[in-house]
């Protein structure tokens, strides 16, 4: 599975149990990962590597999808990352949405994960096109 891709994903994941699993899987799929807890942490820890971030991946925990899209846009702006893709992983959705990926802005996507393969496919699509 692992191949040297040399692309960096900024992960924003507030859940302490999910973060290490997601980080390990992303690394296993060949990506470099900067793992952060929230918006403030993401901006603080990545301000020095701004231009080297290829994608922002955020897990929805507690707030609305719209809130998290705005988080992604604020991180983009503060780090001068435009037009870096932002993926929001939705939490607590209906069966009808499961398996779907919806583009909600020019570079913003919401993924309703059926399985992790769906995320792998989207990452490949956004980062290698």
């Amino acid at each position: 599975m692992s191949e040297k891709i040399n692309q960096t994903i900024l992960l924003v994941e507030s859940d302490d149990e999910t973060r290490p699993l997601l980080q390990a899987n992303l690394r296993g799929w060949g990506y470099q990962v900067i793992a952060t807890v929230d918006e403030k942490d993401a901006i603080a820890h990545t301000s020095h590597v701004g231009g080297q971030i290829d994608l922002i991946l955020i897990n929805q925990v507690g707030f609305t999808i719209e809130d998290y899209i705005n988080v992604g846009l604020r991180i983009q702006r503060s780090l001068n990352l435009l037009p870096t893709p932002v993926i929001i992983m939705a939490e607590g959705f209906s069966e009808e949405l499961e398996g779907r990926t919806i583009q909600v802005g020019k570079n913003e996507y919401v993924i309703y994960m059926e399985d992790a393969e769906q995320l792998i496919t989207l990452l490949k699509e956004l980062l290698l096109r």
Partner: peptide, 16 residues
């Protein structure tokens, strides 16, 4: 009692 995303990622590890 965990996040769904955590289960998805753990399931992927087991699958791999």
């Amino acid at each position: 009692g965990v996040r769904r995303a955590g289960v998805t990622q753990a399931a992927q590890k087991f699958k791999e």
